[in-house]
Amino acid sequence: MSTAAPDTFNGPIIDAEDLWRTYEMGAEEIHALRGVTFKIDKGEYVAVMGPSGSGKSTLMNLIGCLDTPTSGTYVLRGKVVSEMDDDELAAIRNREIGFVFQTFNLLPRASALHNVELPLVYAGIPRDERIEKARQALEMVDLGDRVTHKPNELSGGQRQRVAVARALVMNPSILLADEPTGNLDTATGQDIMALFDRLKEAGHTIILVTHEREIADHAQRTIHIRDGQIESDERRTS
């Protein structure tokens, strides 16, 4: 089990201040987020909950630097992301963010190993080192014996574990998971949640979107969103 990168940065990993995200639909404006403010510290495990259409995915896209806020400031590990251009955002996504999607989003024609290699490719890491790291990441999610398998030769849970390995291979600051168990049966979902617990133990910072209470209970902090605003932000001290 690898540990998170040694980090000299002391402030909060995420410092979001009054984030707004407005979509223009013709003449109509849709405010998907209306002034969201929160901080997340290193090593936290946070669940984001809320009804459908409340703005959870929009928030995750902002945190993951796939999108920039209409207004407000977003500071990621001391860097002001909300003012970055395309290429800088791509570099941040590559180094700081690990995505896990509900629909896995693996490249169908590539092997598990090659899928996990991808972020290393865009980081410009030499081939031998890439293969080594990708193999290690797959071993960490207990798929050391499935490296050459294509996604359609793997079960749903295995596919999601490949996706987790891919998200972790660059050793990012945050692991973002938008309903990672949404396409899995309960038992397989539990496996993935156990994996997340292990990652939390190892020091990773995790933000996870879910509809299910039991899933959210794995996290130590739950942010509830309703109509684009934070309704509650509770920490459990267990």
Binding site: G64, L66, D86, D87, A90, A91, R93, N94, R95, F99, N105, L106, L107, L118, P119, Y122, A123, R166, M170
Partner: peptide
């Protein structure tokens, strides 16, 4: 299209 989205999410730039 989806593959392109995934690649971008993983850090691919426009140039890539």
């Amino acid at each position: 299209t989806r593959e392109i989205g995934v690649r971008k999410a993983l850090g691919a730039t426009r140039k890539d």
